[in-house]
Design a protein around this nucleic acid. Structure first.
Lengths: 242, 242
DNA sequence: CGCAGCATTGAGTTAGGTCAAAAGGAGTGG
DNA sequence: CCACTCCTTTTGACCTAACTCAATGCTGCG
């Protein structure tokens, strides 16, 4: 059978990201059934949307490669980035409650996602307890993450926000086998600013400040963290400003 | 059998809040099984905590009466209110992912909650599809709500934040049979400020401004909304500031 | 090579924060 | 019932972190 050019059949059982998006400790037969969860893969070009606000919800998406942002938009056109997602992370959870998505998911670089029809997920989690619990954990994790962002937006200063952002990114990248100290930002200053509740100029200035203080080396989107302890100190103790 | 003074056995099947916390359209037998979900009720005195950060997660809680706030705390002691919850709403979802709670839930007035052990919820949702989907929807709703708060914290001005807050509260109260235009705030200005990412003085000043503009009547915690359209206009079109 | 989008930096403004004082209520005990 | 205390709220004066506007500089892509 032929598949459309932008989709391809695929299996979780031999996917190297499995331990990121799927539960561990499944039996052989459970693992086989999980393979059926992923209907197809879908490629999303840089700048293209995976789904958008108002669109009918059908599936969750596991990111295989690439980098996304999700954002919500107000009536008057302002938008707020609500998250940046990378390989192994699941997006689309916002769509469950109203059967329609309430945010946009946009690829920040060419990406590929595994499309998992939600009715199949529900079907299978009724039979595989480990999957059921895993789905609950993924949703709970997202709630806890957003709690953290609320704390950041509601009570941190610009430097703290950017420091927390960098530490979070580098920690997630490290979990995927990348460097602990070096990263390439996939998003613009404006997108970082939107996520952190700051204007792009403030993001840029704060980067410059980190450079001056010898905490980071920043060349456009290439960031090298020279003093991670200093970054952590900024997040934990805002009063250590000079 | 005797029960402890602060707990009492109870049934969902004849609870008037059922349509708020439970799925609708259950069969008689499903309904009976749902009754078993609620282990006990628990009373929480004003100012007492239902659960707190670090505590082992065992159950979700459906609020029967009373009013709660949830808040996260930073290492250096600042805290951020992440939500206010009222009758019919479910709290405790944050605890699923790490088996421990990551926030505090504190009663803002004497309250009573239905304790639903999570392992029973999972057990039963494997058998009752409607319950399974309902749990998914509750978690998704919380994710969407938090998206909205991120938008508020990340890109709204003080007046917009307070207007959105009041409209949201009054809408939820109205869904519970209370007035569309009058409400009694269960929380202090400081708690409102924490939720909205503002200082208590700013909250107070913004209330005063609404009063001056004839939008609200505010006497301490008693608020009467005189011009809901004006409030909506503030939220949707921030540029209508004078 | 040149253009368009992104990033940096400077100068001036402002929304909201900080600090301080005073006043209004709610609860308690005499 | 009143007096007292404690907590919350309001309001004023001043300050500052971040925003706005504007100019300039990169850089990667066609």
């Amino acid at each position: 059978m032929l598949l459309k050019a932008d989709t391809l059949k695929v299996a979780c059982s031999n996917c190297n990201l499995r331990e990121l998006c799927m539960p561990v400790g499944l039996s052989e037969t459970e693992l086989q059934r999980i393979d059926d969860l992923v209907a197809v893969r879908r490629r999303v070009k840089r700048g293209a949307t995976l789904f958008s606000n108002g669109e009918k919800f059908t599936s969750l998406y596991a990111i295989r490669t690439g980098f996304f942002k999700t954002c919500v938009v107000t009536e008057d056109g302002r938008d707020q980035v609500t998250g940046f997602q990378m390989a192994g992370e699941i997006i689309g959870l916002d769509g469950i409650v109203h059967e329609h998505h309430t945010c946009d998911a946009i690829a920040l670089e060419d990406a590929e996602v595994c499309v998992m029809p939600f009715h199949r997920i529900e079907e299978l989690s009724r039979e595989v307890g480990a999957l059921q619990h895993h789905v609950h954990k993924i949703m709970s994790r997202e709630i806890v993450r957003e709690n953290g962002v609320m704390l950041l937006l509601g009570s941190m200063r610009a430097e703290e926000r950017l420091a927390a952002f960098l530490l979070n990114l580098v920690q997630r990248l490290h979990a995927r086998g990348f460097s602990q100290s070096e990263l390439v930002l996939r998003m613009t200053r404006e997108e970082i600013g939107s996520y952190l509740g700051l204007k792009l100029e403030t993001v840029s200035r704060t980067f410059s400040k980190f450079v001056e203080e010898g905490i980071c080396d920043v060349r456009q989107r290439h960031v090298r963290i020279l003093n991670p302890e200093a970054l952590k100190a900024i997040v934990n103790n805002p009063s250590c400003r000079d």
